[in-house]
């Protein structure tokens, strides 16, 4: 019981804040309530297939396969797979974290996983089409091209900056959470 409370301390704290806001500022509280509910709605509709996919990836894709296609020496293939995985995604960025964790658990290269997160955040295919209709081709084109270039450079630099121990640490915590 005590363990559970410690584990969910942030959730309880947030719930307390929400109650406090409802009590002190009923107007803002009301909209916070409905926004929170709709957030939970989005989360519960987006996460189940992603979680299922993570499970399937875990049992069907052996580590060796992942290392070959996305691992340390995967080269451009790894980048391409990261790109396609990210662009076919659906859902907000937080839903990408557990997917990234399972990729890391199977020893995908950190650069590739970071690039995957970048693509997921910016260049999900359905969102690209929506952006195109909202802001036009030029805007969308500059957005995708500039952001993906920076993400790519950033991912390569980050991998270089991290020491061997730090990388091992990342692989470890990701494995525990996946």
């Amino acid at each position: 019981m005590k363990e559970k409370i410690v584990k969910y301390k942030w959730a309880l704290l947030m719930l307390l804040s929400l109650i406090l806001v409802n009590w002190a500022l009923p107007d803002i509280g009301k909209s916070a309530n409905s926004l929170t509910l709709s957030n939970f709605g989005t989360m519960l509709s987006v996460l189940p297939p992603i979680m299922l996919l993570i499970g399937l990836l875990d049992v069907w894709v052996p580590k060796e396969t992942m290392i070959r296609y996305m691992g340390e020496h995967s080269g451009p293939t790894g980048f391409l797979i990261a790109f396609f995985l990210g662009s076919f995604a659906a859902g907000p960025l937080y839903a990408a974290f557990p997917v990234a964790a399972i990729l890391l658990k199977k020893r995908a290269k950190i650069t590739n996983v970071l690039f995957f997160l970048g693509v997921w955040s910016t260049a999900k295919l359905p969102m690209v089409m929506f952006e195109y209709t909202s802001f036009g081709g030029k805007f969308t084109f500059i957005h995708i091209l500039s952001n993906l270039t920076v993400f790519l450079i950033g991912a390569i630099v980050l991998e270089k900056v991290l020491s061997k121990d730090e990388k091992e640490h990342i692989y470890q915590i990701a494995t525990e959470l996946a």
């Binding site: 947030m14 929400l18 916070a32 309530n33 926004l35 957030n39």
Partner: peptide
Amino acid sequence: PMMIGIGL
């Protein structure tokens, strides 16, 4: 907590 925080 994230979902509640975003709502707030």
